[in-house]
Amino acid sequence: MANSTASPHAPFKSVPYYPPMAINPDARCHLVISDGSDLPRTQALVSRLAQTPRVDSLVLGASDTPSLQRLLQVLAQWFAGLHVGVQLHVLGSEAFLWTIHAQATAHGLSNEEISLCSPTDAMQRLVYCVHCANVHSHPLADAVKCPACAVALEVREHFSRRLGAYLGVCRNADAPYSGLPA
């Protein structure tokens, strides 16, 4: 299958496109959310933002946000007290980026206000099994086996931001359950 990220049309297709980091100089508040997988990059970003009116950061695994659940709780509290003029920067695995993206849009942020930095786990991706509707993380490959329903899936170059996952569809309808180890 063609590598559509190389196409000039990539930003307009469903597969995610992570543009180079850009800082909105007019934002009144910057939030930096990281899953801790690339702390040097997180710290570099926070330093770059030092001149802006307000910077807050949350790092998964830190004392006040030890778990993803806790981090999402803290984030929800933040969002409730924030005003238009925010720029959110997210660093981490692709799964983490889209989890935070979903939480942010649920609180009214738009794509223009959310910057997703290129994922730290380029060799993994989430795959949505269209047959059983479960999402699992898999090593980067054209074909994977769904751990929930055991169908061997072809991973299509089609991505849902809402689910944060690529589309997985049965790769061989003559033998749906065979061909790949789980």
Binding site: S4, F12, K13, S14, V15, Y128, V130, E157, H158, S160, R161, R162, L163, L167
Partner: peptide, 12 residues
């Protein structure tokens, strides 16, 4: 799967 996508996204 396609729910929530923009016009060009769901035609990918």
């Amino acid at each position: 799967f396609d729910a929530g996508m923009s016009f060009k996204q769901w035609h990918t």
